[in-house]
Design a binder for these strands. Structure first.
Lengths: 179, 179
DNA sequence: AATATATGAATGAACG
DNA sequence: CGTTCATTCATATATT
């Protein structure tokens, strides 16, 4: 279920020299490792149970066994219900691209088009798109203001940049539950 | 790395009473799990290292690409850098005081002043201050709601203005997570 | 080490 | 549109 893919995508093919990965590739790698890490934590537990004695399957109230099965399904996906829309990776990329090119474009009827396109990659409503652009613009501007305000702060201040420096979010790659 | 196969194997449908796997199969399974467990421990560590990726020393926002080598290097070491701001005792006191006196005053341009003042006691950015107040307000409110919601016994009058019809109107895209 | 809690940060949605 | 709210995520810290 979530196990394939480590190598299926741009095999980074690193030579031992000075190979460089793009942020995207790195991000993908992170996500995948994260998935494996999750699976692995479970496996470690399971292993412990197994080693600790009995048949993992028959002995206990099949709790462990079941865990393994459902494990695969939830590997990279938080099973927590999502109550608010969250753009998928693909959707986000598209949105960012549009935002960049049409910079100050307060979308209007294009919202429909964009929505239409994005809905091929997960459910989404026009309101979502609208809000997204609103927020994007507002936050970009606010960040700018802050940046321009600080003058000589040579204190090697920590970066408050947060534009796209997303941390690896261990989920958001797999199936988007639609209902 | 051949992780596949672990899950591809249809989980033996076990019943409560009889064991459907032979001892051999079980043994094989154990061995496999054991191996995976080992691999996974490594992966977990690696993942942790990668996720913590940041650069406390040069502060440079690592551009579009990052060398794989450095990635590998990080996997081995514990990047113990703190990647999120933490207010010092002094800063916290000041923040609390300001929060108390200007209670409902959602700071706006005062952020700058506050930041300026606090930066005399350690690293801090306007964003930090902004976030701090946001969180402070939100969490204070939530705590109160919890208190008022269940203590309704004889104190029926101390509810704050509940006139805020702030209700999530998630009527269209609520995703019902079943499981 | 496993779990619980506190909290800085990110972000979708709503308000004026 | 600029601000603010509400919820969620991820990490830091504390506890057993």
């Amino acid at each position: 279920i979530g196990l394939r893919g480590v190598g299926s995508q741009h095999p980074p093919s690193f030579t031992m020299q000075e190979q460089v990965m793009t942020e995207e590739q790195l991000e993908t790698l992170r996500r995948q490792i994260s998935v494996y890490a999750t699976i692995c934590r479970q496996l470690v537990h399971m292993h412990r149970a197994v080693v600790l004695q009995m048949d993992p399957m028959s002995g206990m109230p099949l709790g462990q066994a079941i865990a393994f099965d459902s494990l695969m399904g939830m590997a990279g996906q938080r099973v927590t219900a999502r109550q608010r829309w969250t753009p998928s990776q693909v959707q986000l990329q598209i949105l960012e691209k549009i935002f960049d090119q049409d910079k100050g474009t307060p979308s209007k009827q294009k919202i429909k088009e964009i929505t239409a396109e994005l809905s091929q990659h997960g459910h989404i409503s026009e309101t979502n798109v609208y809000n997204w652009f609103q927020n994007r613009r507002a936050r970009t501007k606010r960040k700018q203001q802050i940046v321009t305000s600080n003058s000589g702060e040579s204190e090697m201040d920590n970066s408050l940049d947060s534009s796209k420096g997303k941390q690896a979010k261990t989920d958001e790659n797999i199936v988007q539950e639609t209902q």
